[in-house]
Protein backbone atom coordinates (compact mmCIF):
# COMPACT_ATOMS: atom_id res chain seq x y z
CA UNK A 1 0.00 0.00 0.00
CA UNK A 2 1.49 3.35 -1.08
CA UNK A 3 1.59 5.68 1.92
CA UNK A 4 -1.02 8.44 1.63
CA UNK A 5 0.00 12.11 1.53
CA UNK A 6 -2.23 12.56 4.55
CA UNK A 7 -3.66 9.87 6.82
CA UNK A 8 -6.58 10.17 6.69
CA UNK A 9 -6.77 11.92 3.34
CA UNK A 10 -9.98 13.97 3.31
CA UNK A 11 -11.55 14.35 -0.11
CA UNK A 12 -14.80 16.18 -0.81
CA UNK A 13 -16.92 15.81 -3.92
CA UNK A 14 -19.53 18.53 -4.10
CA UNK A 15 -22.14 19.78 -6.50
CA UNK A 16 -25.84 20.24 -6.96
CA UNK A 17 -28.48 17.50 -6.84
CA UNK A 18 -28.59 15.60 -10.11
CA UNK A 19 -24.95 16.21 -11.11
CA UNK A 20 -23.81 12.70 -10.33
CA UNK A 21 -22.04 13.35 -7.04
CA UNK A 22 -22.88 9.99 -5.53
CA UNK A 23 -21.72 8.09 -8.58
CA UNK A 24 -18.37 9.91 -8.59
CA UNK A 25 -17.69 9.26 -4.91
CA UNK A 26 -18.57 5.60 -5.34
CA UNK A 27 -16.17 5.20 -8.27
CA UNK A 28 -13.32 6.88 -6.41
CA UNK A 29 -14.03 4.91 -3.24
CA UNK A 30 -13.97 1.64 -5.14
CA UNK A 31 -10.75 2.54 -6.98
CA UNK A 32 -8.97 3.31 -3.73
CA UNK A 33 -10.42 0.21 -2.07
CA UNK A 34 -8.53 -1.90 -4.58
CA UNK A 35 -5.32 -0.29 -3.27
CA UNK A 36 -6.26 -1.55 0.16
CA UNK A 37 -7.00 1.75 1.86
CA UNK A 38 -9.77 2.07 4.41
CA UNK A 39 -12.62 4.07 2.94
CA UNK A 40 -15.61 5.76 4.53
CA UNK A 41 -17.92 7.84 2.40
CA UNK A 42 -20.48 10.13 3.94
CA UNK A 43 -23.18 11.46 1.71
CA UNK A 44 -25.83 14.14 1.90
CA UNK A 45 -28.67 12.41 0.15
CA UNK A 46 -31.77 14.30 1.24
CA UNK A 47 -31.40 17.12 -1.20
CA UNK A 48 -30.22 15.08 -4.11
CA UNK A 49 -32.15 15.79 -7.29
CA UNK A 50 -34.10 18.66 -5.78
CA UNK A 51 -31.71 21.45 -6.59
CA UNK A 52 -29.99 21.43 -3.22
CA UNK A 53 -26.31 21.33 -2.41
CA UNK A 54 -24.90 17.82 -2.37
CA UNK A 55 -21.67 16.77 -0.73
CA UNK A 56 -19.78 13.52 -0.35
CA UNK A 57 -17.02 13.28 2.24
CA UNK A 58 -14.43 10.61 1.46
CA UNK A 59 -12.15 9.50 4.29
CA UNK A 60 -9.21 7.60 2.88
CA UNK A 61 -6.94 6.08 5.50
CA UNK A 62 -4.36 3.38 6.04
CA UNK A 63 -5.65 1.59 9.13
CA UNK A 64 -8.69 2.70 11.05
CA UNK A 65 -11.93 3.69 9.33
CA UNK A 66 -12.86 7.30 9.95
CA UNK A 67 -16.17 9.06 10.39
CA UNK A 68 -18.45 9.80 7.41
CA UNK A 69 -18.01 13.51 8.08
CA UNK A 70 -14.78 15.46 7.69
CA UNK A 71 -14.18 17.66 10.76
CA UNK A 72 -14.28 21.41 10.30
CA UNK A 73 -11.41 22.90 8.30
CA UNK A 74 -9.77 19.58 7.51
CA UNK A 75 -10.32 18.88 3.82
CA UNK A 76 -7.27 18.13 1.66
CA UNK A 77 -8.96 18.20 -1.71
CA UNK A 78 -12.29 19.57 -2.89
CA UNK A 79 -13.63 18.44 -6.25
CA UNK A 80 -16.50 20.75 -7.13
CA UNK A 81 -18.95 20.28 -9.95
CA UNK A 82 -20.19 23.83 -9.43
CA UNK A 83 -18.24 26.93 -8.33
CA UNK A 84 -20.61 28.28 -5.66
CA UNK A 85 -20.63 24.84 -4.06
CA UNK A 86 -16.82 24.88 -3.95
CA UNK A 87 -16.99 28.10 -1.95
CA UNK A 88 -19.70 26.68 0.30
CA UNK A 89 -17.60 23.62 1.17
CA UNK A 90 -14.52 25.79 1.77
CA UNK A 91 -16.62 27.64 4.30
CA UNK A 92 -16.86 24.54 6.43
CA UNK A 93 -13.87 22.42 5.45
CA UNK A 94 -11.40 24.83 3.83
CA UNK A 95 -7.92 25.75 5.04
CA UNK A 96 -4.98 27.57 3.47
CA UNK A 97 -3.47 24.33 2.13
CA UNK A 98 -6.53 22.70 0.62
CA UNK A 99 -6.56 21.96 -3.10
CA UNK A 100 -9.57 22.64 -5.30
CA UNK A 101 -10.63 21.34 -8.69
CA UNK A 102 -13.64 23.25 -9.91
CA UNK A 103 -15.93 22.90 -12.89
CA UNK A 104 -16.82 26.50 -13.70
CA UNK A 105 -20.32 25.88 -15.09
CA UNK A 106 -22.68 27.66 -12.69
CA UNK A 107 -26.06 26.27 -11.73
CA UNK A 108 -28.18 29.12 -10.50
CA UNK A 109 -30.23 28.31 -7.42
CA UNK A 110 -33.85 29.41 -7.21
CA UNK A 111 -32.68 32.11 -4.84
CA UNK A 112 -30.54 33.51 -7.64
CA UNK A 113 -33.10 32.90 -10.37
CA UNK A 114 -35.73 34.85 -8.48
CA UNK A 115 -33.38 37.73 -7.82
CA UNK A 116 -32.98 37.46 -4.02
CA UNK A 117 -29.29 36.67 -4.42
CA UNK A 118 -26.73 37.59 -7.05
CA UNK A 119 -24.40 35.03 -8.52
CA UNK A 120 -20.76 36.13 -8.72
CA UNK A 121 -18.90 36.20 -12.03
CA UNK A 122 -16.61 33.33 -12.98
CA UNK A 123 -13.60 35.65 -12.56
CA UNK A 124 -14.69 36.59 -9.08
CA UNK A 125 -15.20 32.94 -8.16
CA UNK A 126 -11.76 32.01 -9.48
CA UNK A 127 -10.12 34.78 -7.51
CA UNK A 128 -11.82 33.72 -4.28
CA UNK A 129 -11.19 30.02 -4.85
CA UNK A 130 -7.49 30.66 -5.50
CA UNK A 131 -7.23 32.88 -2.46
CA UNK A 132 -8.94 30.40 -0.14
CA UNK A 133 -6.90 27.39 -1.26
CA UNK A 134 -3.31 26.27 -1.65
CA UNK A 135 -3.82 25.29 -5.26
CA UNK A 136 -6.79 25.48 -7.60
CA UNK A 137 -7.61 24.11 -11.03
CA UNK A 138 -10.48 25.57 -13.03
CA UNK A 139 -11.98 23.36 -15.70
CA UNK A 140 -14.98 23.39 -18.00
CA UNK A 141 -16.16 19.83 -17.82
CA UNK A 142 -19.85 20.48 -18.50
CA UNK A 143 -19.01 22.02 -21.85
CA UNK A 144 -16.68 19.17 -22.73
CA UNK A 145 -19.22 16.61 -21.53
CA UNK A 146 -21.96 18.08 -23.71
CA UNK A 147 -19.56 17.76 -26.63
CA UNK A 148 -19.13 14.13 -25.70
CA UNK A 149 -22.88 13.66 -25.80
CA UNK A 150 -24.21 14.05 -22.27
CA UNK A 151 -23.58 16.57 -19.48
CA UNK A 152 -23.43 13.69 -16.98
CA UNK A 153 -19.91 12.80 -18.24
CA UNK A 154 -18.80 15.90 -16.40
CA UNK A 155 -18.39 13.95 -13.18
CA UNK A 156 -16.21 11.34 -14.88
CA UNK A 157 -14.01 14.12 -16.28
CA UNK A 158 -13.62 15.46 -12.77
CA UNK A 159 -12.50 12.03 -11.58
CA UNK A 160 -9.97 12.13 -14.42
CA UNK A 161 -8.90 15.61 -13.34
CA UNK A 162 -8.46 14.44 -9.76
CA UNK A 163 -6.35 11.54 -11.02
CA UNK A 164 -4.37 14.03 -13.07
CA UNK A 165 -3.30 16.00 -9.99
CA UNK A 166 -1.42 12.92 -8.76
CA UNK A 167 -2.55 13.55 -5.18
CA UNK A 168 -4.16 10.12 -4.91
CA UNK A 169 -3.23 6.88 -6.70
CA UNK A 170 -6.17 6.82 -9.12
CA UNK A 171 -4.74 4.90 -12.05
CA UNK A 172 -6.62 4.67 -15.35
CA UNK A 173 -6.77 0.87 -15.29
CA UNK A 174 -8.35 0.98 -11.81
CA UNK A 175 -10.98 3.31 -13.18
CA UNK A 176 -11.67 0.90 -15.98
CA UNK A 177 -11.86 -2.06 -13.61
CA UNK A 178 -14.35 -0.29 -11.37
CA UNK A 179 -16.73 1.05 -14.00
CA UNK A 180 -16.67 -2.25 -15.87
CA UNK A 181 -18.47 -3.70 -12.83
CA UNK A 182 -21.52 -1.58 -13.61
CA UNK A 183 -21.41 -0.58 -17.25
CA UNK A 184 -21.47 -2.32 -20.60
CA UNK A 185 -18.33 -2.32 -22.79
CA UNK A 186 -19.40 0.53 -25.11
CA UNK A 187 -20.22 2.73 -22.15
CA UNK A 188 -16.92 1.91 -20.50
CA UNK A 189 -15.19 3.12 -23.65
CA UNK A 190 -17.00 6.47 -23.60
CA UNK A 191 -16.30 6.91 -19.90
CA UNK A 192 -12.60 6.28 -20.51
CA UNK A 193 -12.61 9.05 -23.09
CA UNK A 194 -14.19 11.33 -20.48
CA UNK A 195 -11.64 10.26 -17.86
CA UNK A 196 -8.73 11.01 -20.20
CA UNK A 197 -10.23 14.34 -21.16
CA UNK A 198 -10.50 15.30 -17.50
CA UNK A 199 -6.95 14.22 -16.83
CA UNK A 200 -5.67 16.41 -19.64
CA UNK A 201 -7.57 19.40 -18.25
CA UNK A 202 -5.52 19.72 -15.06
CA UNK A 203 -2.30 19.55 -17.04
CA UNK A 204 -3.17 23.05 -18.25
CA UNK A 205 -3.30 24.03 -14.59
CA UNK A 206 -4.85 27.36 -13.66
CA UNK A 207 -4.65 28.76 -17.14
CA UNK A 208 -7.55 26.60 -18.21
CA UNK A 209 -10.93 28.08 -17.73
Amino acid sequence: MTPLKHNPYNLVITGVGGQGNVMASRVIGNMLSIHGYRITIGETFGASQRGGSVRSDLRISEEIAFSPQIPKGRAHMIVAMEPAEAIRVLGELGNPDVKVICNMRPIHSVNVICGDFTYPSAEQHKEWLSDLSGQAWFVNTTEAAVKLGNPIFSNIMLIGALAGTGDLPLERDLFETVIARWLSADKVEKNLVAFDKGMSMVKDDKRDG
Binding site: R50, G51, G52, I87, R88, S109, V110, P120, D131, L132
Partner: peptide, 19 residues
Protein backbone atom coordinates in the same frame (compact mmCIF):
# COMPACT_ATOMS: atom_id res chain seq x y z
CA UNK B 1 -13.14 35.65 8.68
CA UNK B 2 -12.14 35.58 5.02
CA UNK B 3 -13.91 32.32 4.22
CA UNK B 4 -17.12 33.35 5.96
CA UNK B 5 -17.24 36.57 4.01
CA UNK B 6 -16.78 34.73 0.73
CA UNK B 7 -19.37 32.13 1.51
CA UNK B 8 -21.80 34.98 2.11
CA UNK B 9 -21.15 36.58 -1.27
CA UNK B 10 -19.88 33.64 -3.28
CA UNK B 11 -22.22 30.82 -2.31
CA UNK B 12 -25.75 32.13 -2.66
CA UNK B 13 -28.39 30.16 -0.77
CA UNK B 14 -29.64 27.08 -2.57
CA UNK B 15 -33.18 26.43 -1.40
CA UNK B 16 -34.65 23.09 -2.25
CA UNK B 17 -37.04 23.33 -5.11
CA UNK B 18 -39.01 21.22 -7.49
CA UNK B 19 -36.91 19.82 -10.31
Amino acid sequence: KKVNERVFFGAPARDLTFC
